[in-house]
Simulated scan of single mutants.
Amino acid sequence: MAIAPDYKLHDIVEMKKPHACGANSWEITRVGADIKLSCTNCGRGIMMSRFDFNKRIKKILQVANQKEE
C-alpha cells in the first residue's frame, strides 16, 4: 500500500478533470477527513472525502508558504 502525500492548507493542486469554468488549479482551504477546495479562477468551493481527493489529484502545483511566527 502506497503512502499518500501530506497536503497542507493553501497548497495549489491540479486535478485530473478541469472545473466547468475552464481552470484546472484548486487551492486547498480545509484539510481533515474531508478536503475542501476553491477554484483559483472563479472561487467556487467544493468538498470531497480524502479518499476521492487522492484518486482525483494529478499533482501539486505550488506548496504553500508556511510562515513561522
Score class of each variant (00 low, 15 high):
28 I>Q: 02
69 E>W: 13
30 R>P: 04
28 I>Y: 02
30 R>V: 14
11 D>P: 01
57 I>F: 09
25 S>N: 10
22 G>L: 02
17 K>I: 07
5 P>F: 09
52 D>G: 04
46 I>E: 04
28 I>R: 09
14 E>S: 06
19 H>T: 03
6 D>L: 12
35 I>V: 07
62 Q>I: 02
37 L>G: 11
13 V>G: 03
2 A>M: 09
62 Q>K: 09
4 A>Y: 06
57 I>N: 05
3 I>K: 11
17 K>G: 01
53 F>G: 10
45 G>R: 11
1 M>D: 07
63 V>F: 09
57 I>H: 06
8 K>R: 14
64 A>E: 13
23 A>S: 08
36 K>D: 11
59 K>P: 00
14 E>A: 07
43 G>K: 01
63 V>C: 12
11 D>M: 07
69 E>I: 12
56 R>E: 13
51 F>Y: 06
19 H>G: 02
32 G>F: 00
12 I>Y: 00
59 K>M: 13
33 A>V: 13
1 M>A: 14
44 R>E: 05
6 D>R: 11
50 R>T: 12
23 A>H: 11
26 W>P: 08
11 D>Y: 00
38 S>I: 07
42 C>G: 00
54 N>P: 01
5 P>T: 04
41 N>A: 02
25 S>L: 05
53 F>E: 12
32 G>N: 05
9 L>F: 12
18 P>T: 11
56 R>L: 15
1 M>P: 07
11 D>T: 08
38 S>V: 08
68 E>H: 15
67 K>W: 05
67 K>L: 14
3 I>L: 15
42 C>I: 04
8 K>F: 11
25 S>R: 10
10 H>F: 15
16 K>S: 00
57 I>L: 09
57 I>Q: 10
4 A>H: 10
42 C>L: 05
25 S>E: 05
3 I>E: 15
68 E>P: 14
25 S>A: 13
4 A>W: 03
7 Y>H: 06
51 F>T: 13
48 M>F: 04
67 K>Q: 14
23 A>D: 07
52 D>C: 12
62 Q>G: 03
59 K>L: 04
2 A>F: 13
22 G>S: 08
24 N>A: 03
10 H>L: 15
3 I>Y: 10
40 T>Y: 00
45 G>W: 08
10 H>G: 10
19 H>Y: 09
36 K>Q: 15
56 R>D: 09
17 K>D: 12
4 A>V: 12
22 G>I: 04
6 D>G: 11
60 I>S: 06
69 E>F: 15
48 M>P: 05
60 I>D: 00
54 N>T: 09
33 A>Y: 06
7 Y>D: 15
11 D>G: 11
66 Q>G: 10
23 A>I: 01
60 I>K: 01
49 S>P: 13
49 S>H: 05
33 A>I: 05
10 H>D: 15
67 K>N: 15
